[in-house]
Every structure is written in C-alpha cells, then in structure tokens.
Design a protein around this nucleic acid. Structure first.
Lengths: 192, 192
DNA sequence: TTAAAATAAATGAACGATCATTCTTTTTTA
DNA sequence: TAAAAAAGAATGATCGTTCATTTATTTTAA
C-alpha cells in the first residue's frame, strides 16, 4: 500500500526531472544519468519504471497532455453556447500554457521530434476529443466553418504555441489585452 | 577561382548532408561523423568551414530560411493590392513547404530547439521583412487588423507548419482544395 | 513472536557505442 | 619546394543500457 505510493512518487519524480531537463536544453540533454541524479535515484532504477528513454519521454508526453486537457475542459458546461464554450476552452488552454511554461514548451518540442511515436501521438490526440465534439456541433449549427478539424486546430489552437514562444523570449508579452485580441483572431479564423 | 568554387561546393554538401540527417532522426542524430560521411569528407574538414556543430546548424538555419523567403517573395509586384499580395506570398510559402519538405520540417524543428541562438533567429526574421511591410500597409489602409505582427504571423503563417506536419503524416493531405480553404481561414483571421 | 529464508527493489560500477572536437600526418596545390 | 587543405586516427566525455551485487521487505518456519 505505502509501497505502491512510493512507486508512484518515484515515477512522478522521474517524469518531473525529465520535464525540467528537457526544458532547459532540449530532449537530447535529458540524459538518463541526469534524470536519475535529479530524481535522486540510480540510472538503473529508471529502467524499473520505463523500458527505455523513448518510453520515458512518451509517457511524459501523455502525462503532460493529460493535465493540459484536464485544465482545458475543466469549466465546460453543457448548456453553454458553442462560441462561449470555445472561448472558455481557449482561455483555459492559454492560461495553462502561461502557468505551466515547462509543460507547454515540452509539448511544443514534442510536436517536431521523432522521439514521440505515432501511437502515442494518437493517444494524446484523444484527450482533445471534447474540442472536436464542440466543433462538430458548431459546424452543424452553421456557426463554425465546415472544414477539417485539422484546419480548425491549425488556425485557432496551434498559434498559441507560437505566441507562448514569443512570450517566453520577451518578444511579445501576453498580457490580458493581447490575449483578448488573440482570441478574437482565433475565433474570426474559424467562425463562419 | 576553381578553388573557391570547390570550397562553396563542399560547404553546400555539408549543409545538405546535415539537412538530410536532421530530417530523419532529429537534430541530435545529425552527428558530425555522419555529416562528414554523407558529404564524403573527414570529420575534421567540417571544422574548416564551421566553428562547431552549433554554428553548422545555425548556418543551415539561415541558409534554409533564406531560400524560403526568396521563394515566398519571388512573385511580389508593388502594384498588387494588399490582399492579392498576401495571397501570393501565402501560396508561395505553402508551395515551398510542400516542394521542400526536408527544409520545411527542419525549420519547424528549429522553432523549438535551444540549438539555434537568439542572434541567428533575429537574423532569420529579417528575411521576412517584406511581409511585415505589407502588413503595416494593410493596417494603414484599414484592411488588416491593427494588432502586433506577432499575432498576425501566429495565426496566418505559423499554422502552415502544423498543416505540413499533418500532411507528412498523411493525416490531412494538402490538396488544392484544402489549401484554398486554409488560405481563406488565414485571411479571415487577419482581415479587419 | 522471532529468526531464517526467500523475494523484491535498488544500487553503483561498467559496458560498448558514439559524441564533438583536436592532433598529427599526409596529400594536394601553387 | 613551401604552404595550404584535407585526412584519419585518437581524445576524453557522455550516451543509453545492463550487470553483479547489496539493501530492504515480505514470507515462512519454529
């Protein structure tokens, strides 16, 4: 019982250490030795929890994507209008990314690395299902453009990653005003 | 004279080899030894052209960004309307990314790697100056939203990276129709 | 209830491979 | 023949991973 908790704690510590290392130095710099050191564990111990480095990173991907989705859809109410519902989700996503910069940056890095395998990506995509459902409702109601959800995502959600990047580099600080403008742009792009 | 050309050729071969390696395996997998082997050169020779690996990658970044920009603005005419001009640029960018997938994927990978230093990023940004000029004209004419160019870029250009990613993974093939839809979305997002 | 035995968890050291980089030597060029 | 260009071998460091061993926990037997 306490044993199980200890296992969970150690796993969490390993994921956290990986996240932190990836965040300053990229995935390549998160070596198993460093991860072990930060998690106060022997390198060999990592392999009791994860088959190899790739699985470690993939598990972290699912873990982070999961908490991102959880935050995004937390305040969903079924009787909201489509636009209002989308706005809530959009704002919650932005808030999560601003509050959890390490997580957000990690997810961005995952977009373009071959380290995450296709199966895991598909699994991660499932977390966003409520958004796709909302869009399909919006399309049926004639509120949202009748185009591929990939297009909708590309133009209304994906840009956040760029904005967060600019915010981190202090090139375009995301205050409340800019965020409101950004949402307006996002909505304009997908509304019919 | 012929010596100079040989130098240029070798440099080009090195950049090309790096691009190819980064493309299947990520930046980490483009080791100096592999780059040398593919370029038919000794590892030591690389250091006659580039100070270290970071400079090699940064130079490649500028090189690729340069040809991307060249392709993007090739058909610009000064008497085009703002919308028409933007459409030409947008289509040319998409065409470049579709025709040069290795280059496009490399640039995407560069967005989120610490390997590219801030100075080089700024330098690369300068290549896009004509686009920013166009936008400022559009803003003055009341055609384009009066918001930060970072926002305009995030919502009208950056999404291409996501779409190319989906196209490569065969999740959302970018035919002519989808491309036209995508441009419409891009324009809707930034138009006033 | 306690001591011994068995099992599980965790370790640090070590593996071969590969990394970026440099050194010395050889080849090419002028 | 002198100088420049390129080569291959070698450097120490670090990579992901595994191995033999120790430590901790649980089970068994008295």
């Amino acid at each position: 019982m306490a044993q199980l908790q200890k296992s969970i704690d150690k796993r969490t510590a390993l994921l956290k250490a990986t996240l932190s290392l990836v965040n300053n130095g990229g995935i390549q710099s998160a070596s198993m030795a460093k991860v072990a050191k930060i998690a106060n564990v022997s390198p060999a111990t990592i392999y009791l929890f994860f088959e190899n480095k790739q699985e470690l990173v993939n598990q972290l991907y699912l873990d982070v994507k999961g908490s991102f989705a959880e935050a995004a859809f937390r305040e969903q109410k079924s009787d909201d209008e489509v636009k209002k519902s989308f706005e809530k989700i959009w704002i919650a996503m932005a808030a999560f990314k601003l509050e959890h910069k390490e997580e957000a940056s990690f997810l961005s890095q995952c977009d373009n690395t071959p380290m995450i395998d296709e199966e895991t990506r598909q699994e991660g995509l499932k977390y966003l299902a409520p958004l796709f459902v909302l869009w399909s409702i919006g399309i049926k109601e004639g509120i949202i453009k009748d185009i591929s959800p990939y297009l909708l995502y590309a133009f209304s959600i994906y840009p956040m990653a760029f904005l967060m990047n600019m915010d981190n580099r202090a090139l375009c600080p995301l205050g409340e005003n800019v965020l409101k403008e950004a949402f307006q742009v996002a909505w304009d792009s997908i509304k019919v």
